[in-house]
């Protein structure tokens, strides 16, 4: 609620609702941009052009797509559990949106400046798992339930490396509050946690390989958390049709889709806040201020979203056993090593 004090507004129910709706506006705009980006990047990687006919280079296509989704019939399968089927997309989106509450978009805006920001985001993302299980079960379709169970297993497994990687950043910065974590990293690119944070030089050189490795693993784990290629087993089109959202259409499908895209930004935002300096400018004091901060934050977040898209259109899908192998036998042991090393260096 800093923003309210910042612009001198009275704190009542209306203003609170308005301020908490700001991330929603951001998510909607971001989803439009990312839909376009995803199609364009995928097309150009394959030497194609993607949409060219709706507006200049097809910029109006996302609007057309969304308009189509909105006016599509909202079908519920006859054998489905109507109530849970209808509820599931909203549970998924609520889980994602709750995470945005603790994301510091700028030095002047954070939905809720709670002290346990990152911890809260991890907890909120578990709501997404439940929503996906709900949708998969309620569809009463074998593809949906397989997709849902795979999704839940995957998200629960990859929560371990994610949490460990977050723990390392928290050990270095000494706070779970993303706003404080970001402030710790302000003052230029050399203070970012991925480059060792603002530690003395010798410690920094020692810690550097571990922080780089941690950031790398966090990024891999977060791709798995949002169920994107190469970890898109829950939606594996070639085997499961569409996974948990096979039976969904129209508005409810759009909710799942929006939640997936919002989740992509959410995990990028967590990685940016913890490791890439959050909203702080890479040039120290230059180019900073509430609006510049917003720009840097969104730019860094969008860069990671772009990398996710880039990976998606490069790599094929993993097998289930490879997925579990990656999480439990590669990422987690390496992170234990990093936790140990970083702890040791910090104590020295």
């Amino acid at each position: 609620m800093e923003l309210l004090q910042h612009i001198g507004l009275e704190q009542n129910l209306l203003t609170i609702v308005l301020v908490s709706a700001l991330p929603l506006v951001f998510i909607l705009l971001y989803a439009l941009v990312t839909l376009y980006l995803e199609m364009k990047v995928s097309a150009h990687i394959q030497d194609r052009l993607a949409y060219m006919r709706t507006g200049w280079h097809g910029v109006l296509q996302p609007f057309a797509d969304i308009l189509k989704l909105l006016q599509k019939e909202d079908t519920v399968p006859a054998a489905a559990d109507r109530f849970l089927f209808k509820l599931a997309p909203f549970v998924v989106f609520a889980g994602t949106y709750a995470g945005f509450a603790a994301i510091p978009f700028s030095s002047a805006y954070i939905g809720s400046n709670i002290n346990l920001g990152v911890f809260f985001i991890i907890a909120a993302s578990s709501l997404v798992v439940i929503g996906i299980l709900m949708g998969g079960w309620a569809s009463n379709n074998k593809w949906s339930i397989f997709g849902a169970i795979r999704s839940a297993a995957q998200m629960v497994s990859y929560e371990i490396p994610t949490a460990l990687a977050i723990l390392i950043a928290v050990m270095i910065t000494g706070s779970l509050n993303l706003q404080e974590v970001t402030q710790y990293q302000s003052g230029g690119i050399q203070n970012w946690v991925v480059f060792g944070g603002s530690l003395p030089l010798t410690q920094k050189l020692l810690i550097l390989p571990f922080t780089l490795l941690t950031f790398f693993i966090l990024f891999i784990a977060s791709i798995a958390e949002v169920n994107r290629t190469p970890f898109d087993l829950p939606e594996a089109e070639s085997e499961l049709v569409q996974g948990f959202n096979t039976e969904y259409s129209g508005m409810r499908f759009a909710m799942f889709y929006l939640a997936e895209y919002a989740n992509m930004f959410l995990v990028s935002a967590v990685a940016v806040s913890l490791f890439l300096g959050g909203w702080s400018s890479p040039f120290g004091e230059a180019l900073s201020g509430p609006l510049w901060d917003l720009f840097w934050f969104v730019a860094k977040g969008m860069f990671l979203v772009f990398v996710q898209i880039w990976i998606r259109w490069t790599l094929p899908r993993l097998r289930v056993d490879q997925l579990m192998y990656t999480s439990w036998k590669v990422l987690t042991p390496f992170l234990f090593l990093c936790v140990f090393a970083v702890g040791l260096i910090l104590v020295l």
């Binding site: 097309a43 150009h44 030497d47 194609r48 880039w310």
Partner: peptide, 12 residues
């Protein structure tokens, strides 16, 4: 490779 192709003129 994919990054390279991102900047190759498309064949469409």
């Amino acid at each position: 490779i994919t990054m390279k192709h991102l900047f190759v003129p498309s064949v469409t």
